[in-house]
Write a protein that binds this DNA or RNA. Structure first.
Length: 583
RNA sequence: GCUCACGUAGCUCAGUUGGAUAGAGCAUUACUCUCCGAAGGUAAAGGUCAAAAGUUCAAAUCUUUUCGUGAGCACCA
């Protein structure tokens, strides 16, 4: 158990002993630091229930707490705020205990087995800035879950089965109508080599997307092609496979660059084999009906305030759409893995879709009632005018493009004398990616934020370069100490106020992590690393560690540096940021 | 039209299980390398928390109304 939780538990017990019913008190860092390290607000909540004044209850509590030598400077402020500080002796012990972060400074939630569905790349389209959030948040959540000792499976769930593929192939047909894939009478084997390159793919979808809006027939043909792919028409299927494979290579490369990895590289197409089974489950349980030629599942509930449209299980032309694919995917997942949770990261525009499919899945018992299906929507990345970047207008900045822009400004700033000529570009690239990722993780998950390449290129202030630079500097300091054979055995003395502030902040770590886990948002962690780092930087600039004459103080300073360094490394890894050796 | 989300400093965002004097970064203006890495540090200035009413010891946070912005509303995904 963490140090902070241990104290809270003890205080809670003390209050219960006094005869008050209370679940768990929370030590909140005081927003009036001159009055104490922490504030306890529970006295005011208890007052009404027990018909006493808040002050009287606070008095009783403080009276007990003052017997505990871990605390000092206990006082009450009207109407019943309890202010409390930790004794120096305790703080010193706490920091020493933090050497074992995972044992003494992290609290673990009950164990889950979670499948996280993120990434959301579509093989027909180039990855664009809108794909950033899913990858970044999903990847960081995965890492956080692992740190908190959960089992996690990450699935990229590629979009490889819908109309976009049909559109791309329709466009190929336009440009290369003589390809053997389009010859329905052809019986031989299809070429092994793909007729399309990844460069072709970049232009195909935007062109097709434009055409589809102008030409109704074109769209119709694309839909027919989509149906043929799904029905298994050999030529289209072969071409489809080429596209998927070509695109996958490219997508994998970008995800790798983004430090994002998946356990499963399944796509919507992999659910196809379960579609019939799923449809018959609904049929057998009498959960669907024909409507306008389509097979639909009614998922309305009495408490609904709004009209919830039915799930479209089979379209009137006999094919299935993404809701059915989603259900089939879920069906397979539940069969294969013993999951407690399935989390979906998509932007908030899809929330109705997930509400519908989750209801349908539970209704048909494809998913047991006790399994937690969660849609974790994230805000859209907007342009300055407040409009989301559309994926279909073909006119969006690609992810590669964005990385390049940020890379250019990072490269200018990277000092060749420090990183060495051979590492210059590689380091700048890492920092650029980190900058983008950190800027993306900083706002709350559901916040729509304004996309501005300039913002991602900022290298000062609350940015990844700041965190990386500071962390690397800590490492450098620790290395110098090692070279001088200085032992950093223990923390024995608090010499400055900043140190105390840093330690109090470090004590908050378990709360930050649990909070992030519960809210499924990384902004708390992102903010926390910045706060710890900037507090440490203040310490760093005020105290010349290695020049300190007092050996105990020097050792203590190195000790605190080491802990902050370790915490930073741990959290930067959770966020999925690379830390270069030098920068 | 119906439903949902949002509106906090010039800009971009935190803070929303109700707590004391609403925070940060950028931009602006000063200062700070004879000393462990200045991509660093210090400070100033910047606010009727969209508006109004209500709930209570206490409201940016909860409720209602108004205004503004965005999103969703089955055969696209």
């Amino acid at each position: 158990m963490s140090i902070i939780k241990n104290i809270e538990d003890d205080i809670t017990k003390t209050i219960i002993k006094l005869g008050y019913e209370i679940k768990h008190i929370s030590l909140k860092p005081s927003n009036r630091p001159e009055l104490g390290d922490y504030q306890i607000n529970e006295a005011m909540l208890l007052a009404k229930k027990y018909g006493k004044t808040p002050y009287d209850i606070a008095y009783e509590i403080t009276n007990e707490l003052s017997k505990d030598d871990r605390f000092k400077n206990i006082n009450i402020a009207t109407p019943g705020f309890i202010n409390i500080s930790l004794s120096d002796k305790f703080i010193i012990k706490a920091l020493n205990d933090m050497s074992d972060i995972k044992e003494n400074n992290i609290d673990y939630p009950s164990k889950h087995k979670i499948l996280i569905d993120y990434g959301g790349a579509n093989v027909a389209k180039e990855l664009h800035v809108g794909h950033l959030r899913s990858a970044n948040i999903g990847e960081a959540l995965k890492r956080l879950c692992k740190l908190l000792k959960n089992d996690v499976i990450a699935d990229v769930h590629l979009g490889d089965w819908g109309l976009p593929l049909g559109l791309v192939i329709r466009q190929i047909k336009e440009q290369q109508p003589d390809l053997v894939y389009f010859d329905e009478s052809y019986k031989g084997a299809y070429p092994v080599k793909s007729p399309i390159t990844k460069e072709d793919l970049k232009s195909l979808y935007p062109l097709a997307s434009k055409r589809k809006n102008e030409d109704e027939n074109y769209l119709k043909e694309a839909q027919e092609i989509t149906n043929k792919i799904q029905a298994g028409s050999p030529g289209y299927r072969a071409l489809w496979k080429h596209i998927v494979e070509t695109s996958k290579i490219d997508i994998k490369k970008i995800y790798e660059e983004l430090n994002t990895s998946f356990d499963l590289w399944l796509g919507e197409s992999d659910a196809d084999e379960f579609v019939d089974e799923v449809v018959s489950i609904f049929k057998n349980k009498n959960l669907c009906k024909l409507d306008d030629g389509a097979l639909i599942v009614d998922v309305k509930e009495n408490e609904d305030k709004k009209e919830i449209p039915p799930v479209l299980l089979v379209k009137s032309n006999g094919t299935v759409g993404y809701q059915t694919t989603e259900l089939a995917t879920l069906y397979n997942r539940m069969k294969k893995y013993d999951l407690t949770d399935v989390w979906y990261l998509t932007d908030e525009r899809q929330s109705l879709h997930f509400l519908q499919t989750f209801r349908a899945a539970k209704k048909a018992k494809i998913v047991p009632d006790n399994v937690n299906l969660e849609h974790l929507p994230f805000g859209t990345i907007n342009s300055g005018e407040g409009k989301p970047f559309k994926t279909r207008d073909g006119n969006v900045m690609s992810l590669e493009n964005l990385i390049d822009i940020v890379y250019e400004s990072t490269l200018k700033k990277t000092n060749v004398d420090i990183v060495g000529k051979e590492n210059l570009e590689k380091t700048a690239r890492l920092i650029a990616i980190d900058s983008i990722k950190y800027a993306d993780l900083l706002p709350y998950r559901t916040t729509n934020y304004v996309f501005d390449p300039e913002k991602f290129s900022d290298l000062e202030g609350k940015t990844a370069p700041y965190l990386l630079y500071s962390t690397i500097r800590m490492k450098s300091l620790l290395n110098k100490a090692k070279e001088q054979k200085i032992n950093i055995g223990k923390y024995s003395v608090i010499t400055t106020e900043v140190e105390k502030k840093i330690i109090l902040m470090l004590l908050q770590l378990p709360k930050i992590l649990l909070n992030a886990f519960n809210s499924r948002s990384l902004n708390d962690i992102s903010e926390y690393i910045y706060n710890v780092t900037s507090m440490y930087n203040m310490f760093y600039s005020e105290n010349k560690v290695l020049l300190c004459k007092d050996e105990d103080v020097k050792e203590s300073w190195l000790f605190i540096t080491n802990i902050v360094y370790n915490v930073n490394m741990l959290l930067l890894d959770v966020l999925g940021l690379f830390v270069p050796e030098k920068m």
